[in-house]
């Protein structure tokens, strides 16, 4: 069985001027389809770094092993395939929400769908897309906030918008970087419930957290330490 996502001996080094900071030395992990994996590790251990690499938002070192999606090496992707990967194949939820401040909640949530549409198709699918996004936001508990700007939302509400945005294109896998990290326990568990629901419906879920109780809800847990993944 091919894994949905696989990192094989991945290396990532940050350069600060002349100083090389090796963050991932030899990180390998796999994610099977439909699985819920959580990545734990101390702060600064490289959890976010690994997740970014899996999401195609950053590139591993030149002498690193491959990162594979359905068996295909991300590094071999051309620009168009790479954009498609980010847009359709994975959904990404950032640690710090990263919403566009000028767009409303509704527009933020449907941004990835807009990115994939030509002007012509947009004209045809505009209202259907709006309905679909509004429906999704409703399941995220945001039906009363559609016209608001991110600045007018609480942290939990922003994270829900970010999750809706990650899910709008119905990706195969959701990569979530501490989705509950900045939230109180109750709000956090509400969001986890939402993700669990999706996961039960067939979504593959990779979640970074340093909260053991959160990690406990996953099927499987991997730990990053010293730039490597311990299973």
């Amino acid at each position: 069985m091919t894994m949905l996502l696989a990192a094989e001996h991945v290396k990532k080094t940050y350069r600060l001027g002349k100083v090389a900071v090796p963050v991932l030395r030899d990180a390998s992990m796999t994610v099977a389809e439909g699985e819920w994996v959580s990545i734990v590790g101390s702060s600064g251990s490289g959890k976010s770094t690994l997740l970014h690499l899996l999401g195609g938002l950053d590139r591993p070192d030149a002498d690193s092993g491959p990162i594979r999606f359905n068996g295909a090496d991300l590094r071999a992707f051309g620009p168009a395939r790479q954009n498609h990967y980010r847009n359709r194949d994975v959904g990404f939820v950032f640690q710090f929400y990263h919403l566009l401040p000028e767009l409303t909640v509704l527009e933020n949530a449907m941004l990835p769908a807009l990115v994939g549409l030509s002007r012509l198709r947009w004209l045809g699918e505009r209202s259907a897309l709006r309905d679909r996004t509004a429906e999704l936001l409703k399941t995220c508990g945001l039906s009363h906030r559609l016209g608001h700007r991110p600045a007018e939302l609480s942290g939990g509400e922003r994270q829900r918008v970010a999750i809706a945005r990650a899910l709008i294109n119905e990706p195969k896998v959701l990569l979530a970087d501490e989705p509950t990290g900045n939230l109180d326990v109750r709000t956090g568990s509400g969001i986890l419930d939402l993700l669990a629901e999706r996961q039960a419906a067939g979504l593959t879920l990779v979640m970074v957290t340093h909260d053991e109780s959160v990690a406990a809800r996953a099927h499987r847990r991997v730990r990053i330490a010293d730039g490597a993944v311990e299973h």
Binding site: G55, L57, P79, A80, N83, H84, Y85, R86, N87, R88, F92, F94, H98, L99, L100, P101, L111, P112, V115, G116, R165
Partner: peptide
């Protein structure tokens, strides 16, 4: 710049 990062992260092309 941050907005551009977000757009690129959700799959927007350079040209777009």
């Amino acid at each position: 710049t941050r907005d551009i990062g977000i757009l690129r992260a959700v799959g927007a092309s350079r040209v777009g």
